[in-house]
């Protein structure tokens, strides 16, 4: 009975553990190939455009409305105990420390992560990745490295944009719509915001960018089983990346803001 239970447990954890192991092997290969010349600058810029610039519209809209709703909720809540003056601080701290990195990471995962997994998955099942190898081109260097680097570089950049636009959204609601003092809002924003808040948010964004890019590439790179496999890889990339972002967010926050 006990043996069967252990056996079942073993069978249940075998695949996830194997997945983590293979993902880490892909990470080590990726890091190795990052430092092997020649750098594929053109390909990296192409991916930066795809991950960063093309995600900008959806990130901007999300950021402005998140800042707005945050200000609205905080204002009406804080009014009950006369703390409306702190809305600026709440918006600024929430955006820089938490929402900027996490929201931009989740949006980019849904957009670029899904597309990475689908593209690489299709390349795998149509033998394009094998074709790369036969053309003496390492597929990790050609496909994974540019995506991994772009994810790691562009997510902090998007997080900065999200921070700024969120704070502007908060300002708009608090000052323009709810009639609070502009000076008080800005003072509350600046007085309580430290450089630490911003850069620890950016460290998180870096980590999220590297994670979603690696997981999405991994899911695509090892796709099996035709069109259905590509679908599975895409879903898996978004689900696993999002979970990794949300879970690691807690641990990174506990470490960075202790």
């Amino acid at each position: 009975m006990l043996l069967k239970l252990i056996e079942r447990f073993g069978a249940a954890v075998e695949r996830p553990v194997e997945g983590v192991g293979r993902c880490l092997i892909l990470l080590s290969a990726t890091i190795k190939w990052i430092f092997r010349p020649p750098a594929d600058i053109r390909n990296i810029f192409k991916q930066m455009l795809e991950i960063g610039v093309n995600s900008l519209p959806v990130v901007l809209i999300t950021a402005v409305f998140t800042g707005m709703v945050l200000a609205l909720q905080s204002y009406t809540g804080f009014k009950r105990f006369g703390a409306e003056g702190l809305v600026g601080s709440v918006v600024a701290l929430s955006m820089t420390r938490e929402l900027g990195p996490v929201l931009s990471a989740l949006i980019v995962t849904g957009r670029a992560g899904a597309s990475m997994a689908a593209e690489l998955g299709t390349m795998r099942v149509t033998e394009q990745i094998d074709a790369l190898e036969t053309l003496a081109t390492n597929p990790v260097k050609y496909l994974v490295v540019p995506r991994f680097l772009s994810g790691t570089i562009m997510l902090p950049a998007l997080a900065v944009v999200t921070d700024i636009v969120g704070i502007i959204g908060g300002y708009f609601v608090t000052v323009m719509l709810l009639g609070a003092s502009s000076k008080a809002y800005l003072r509350a924003t600046w007085d309580y915001l430290n450089v630490d808040d911003i850069y620890s948010g950016l460290i998180k964004a870096c980590f999220f960018g590297a994670s979603f890019a690696l997981i999405s590439c991994y899911k695509g790179f090892y796709t099996k089983g035709g069109a259905e496999g590509v679908g599975r890889a895409t879903t898996g990339a978004v689900v696993v990346s999002s979970m990794t972002i949300l879970i690691s967010d807690y641990f990174l926050s506990a470490w960075l803001f202790k």
Partner: peptide
């Protein structure tokens, strides 16, 4: 291995052209 692969050309069953 990559040096050796430069001696080869391979035609895949589905052609495996890079569609991008």
């Amino acid at each position: 291995l990559n040096e050796i692969r430069k001696k080869f050309g391979m035609l895949f069953q589905s052609a495996a052209l890079f569609d991008s």
